[in-house]
Design a protein around this nucleic acid. Structure first.
Lengths: 353, 353
DNA sequence: GTTAGCACTCGTCTTCCTTGAGTGCTAACC
DNA sequence: GGTTAGCACTCAAGGAAGACGAGTGCTAAC
């Protein structure tokens, strides 16, 4: 048996049958059952020979001597790369997706969260969703609004077009007329910079402004720093994690516990795409994370606004239905890009400063 | 055997032993083991007689003829109401809580979410957290900030002191000077009312303002409506749901699936307290929700700001360690109230209009 | 009211056996 | 050479039978 021998067509065909059978039934398949699904008339003994070869080459595994064959991670990989038929979505499926998308969504966080939710219910696997900031976030604009003499609202617009605001209170009263002046100060000194630089800027102002003003500035700058920090390690939304318990591979309570706690409590280190491909598939041990070594992840990204992308990851057992998931997920991602991408939502903006 | 016969002290003592044993081990206990934990010298036959009585009265159950006794829901209830010793927290425990609480939190949503998280890790059971608006939310103040001639920021302050804001785009350009005028319009007509009434108000303005202005108002009012709607069915945060899988009562995959999907995907109808008691315990079948009939929930509430309370619920099997959970949870709730309650955070405000 | 004694119940664990799907190998075939 | 029939072998799964033992309920005596 050669090392880098190219697989014969028949071997590939058999591998494909094994993979698809396992995806559908979670059961090993034997030579006899394979013969039935193979087009020509071939004896089971022949198939057994082929199976032995495929096993030796590492594409298949047998759980125990008399149990038929199941795909190995390497087998899945070959299947995904070469054998899998890119499924086209049926008219009903695209229709259903379009319908799901038609509800209006306004805020970025909402789009991200909702996207995960929609994908999950549509592909039938749990998902996670997160925003991907392509470049460092900074503040684009400050605005202070007087409420009464002891409190005011500070509004902070970030470079990714999100706007955040909060009510703030003061120890000492301030005349409302002063606020525009302070806003101006903030806008001239604290926009377009990274959160790390904010404090030093603030310090350099400390002798130019009165103590009372300084306290106020400090409050607002603190708030902005907090926002920028949050922006860098973004919230991860997960959906439908409990669906995992339906799959027989997580019947083992320990495995279920592992994967669930990872999806629910440890969301932060779910995998992010490593390159710019529109879609990426990580199969079993290809996942760096220990808790995912027996699971697979399909990740897609889509555009929202400028300088931002949304990510959706689908999580399932290694025998996940890659063909269907990939088809649906990529259609989803494309639709989302079309709806919320740069061209559609935001008028082009030049970067500040 | 009388109907409303008051239980003898010995019966109560035995019930207590059964409950606490079951809480600790999840196993039924028999007469012989009970004798060992009972102070005086009593024979197992006597205990058997007592057990038979308690079973007939509905406080105990036997899984099968030769399996000892476990508490029924009624037994738990008696235990919680009368027998449970209110645990005092140890110095280390209060210290640990205080330490956990010392990190600063600014925004209301953050407090809610963080509280659930902290409680979960501290009581060792999953929790859920939600904000409880005591009175209907309305808009307190609008503010529009010009960005460029095609876009502006609308800032909406709600009656519960939260401030939300969003960037909005216009089809037709508008002169920035007009915005204060429009803000004023919004503040006079759309503050202090319920979201249901907003549309009719908007309609009544439709012939007083130009079409272009109307579009803008419409956009802002829509946004406000959305916020008010969100406020009424508030987001529910859950934490540590996967811990449930540790408990033997959820070893059954179907039950695990039920409770997990309830905690993760169906959070909205986790129980809210039915009265104003600072803490409430719902035992097994006392829960209205089908998925919780075999679980218990301990709910506590705490004050944040004016007109708002935070809720934390602890979810676990019926044999949850009520004494410990209750002690820790109530200390937590009190501490949170002390930190974020009316007196500390917000200066008193009179209601608008 | 309490206790000792005893027959009885019933879930759990272990052992042993059967069954059958699936394999790998050999030898014959085209 | 690849292909096929035949056959002995393996091994997980499922079921039956029995031993074990924790726990009960009842009776009769204290």
């Amino acid at each position: 048996m050669g090392f880098h021998m190219k697989l014969t067509d028949r071997k590939k065909q058999i591998l494909k049958i094994v993979v698809e059978n396992y995806i559908a039934t979670a059961d090993a398949i034997g030579s006899k059952a394979i013969v039935e699904r193979l087009p020509g008339k071939i004896s089971s003994a022949t198939v057994r020979n082929e199976l032995a070869d495929l096993t030796e080459l590492g594409y298949l595994e047998q759980p125990h001597t008399s149990a038929g064959r199941i795909p190995s991670a390497k087998g899945y990989r070959l299947y995904v790369n070469e054998l899998m038929e890119k499924r086209a979505l049926s008219a009903e499926e695209t229709e259903k997706i379009n319908q799901t998308l038609s509800g209006k969504m306004s805020q970025v966080d909402q789009i991200i969260a909702k996207a995960g939710q929609m994908v999950s219910s549509f592909v039938g696997y749990p998902t996670y969703a997160v925003a991907d900031h392509r470049s460092a976030t900074s503040v684009k604009r400050f605005e202070l609004i007087a409420m009464d003499e002891n409190s005011f609202i500070s509004v902070v617009m970030l470079s990714d077009s999100r706007v955040k605001s909060q009510l703030m209170h003061l120890q000492l009263p301030i005349e409302p007329e002063k606020l525009p002046e302070l806003s101006h100060l903030l806008n001239t000194h604290f926009t377009g910079i990274r959160s790390d630089d904010m404090n030093s800027r603030l310090m350099s102002l400390s002798d130019q402004v009165s103590g009372q003003w300084f306290l106020l500035l400090n409050q607002v700058v603190d708030y902005a720093c907090e926002l920028l920090r949050d922006a860098s390690h973004q919230e991860v939304f997960t959906n439908g994690a409990s669906q995992l318990l339906n799959f027989p591979e997580y019947r083992d309570l320990d495995k279920a516990q592992d994967i669930m706690s990872f999806m629910v409590d440890n969301k932060e280190n779910l995998p992010l795409p490593t390159d710019d491909a529109p879609m990426q598939i990580l199969i079993g041990p290809e996942n760096v994370n220990e808790a995912l070594k027996e699971s697979s992840v399909v990740i897609a990204s889509y555009d929202i606004g400028d300088n931002m992308r949304g990510l959706v990851g689908v999580v399932g057992p290694t025998r996940m239905d890659y063909a269907t998931v990939a088809a649906r997920l990529s259609y989803f991602a494309e639709s989302l890009s079309r709806m919320f991408g740069k061209n559609n939502q935001l008028p082009p903006k030049e970067e500040k400063e």
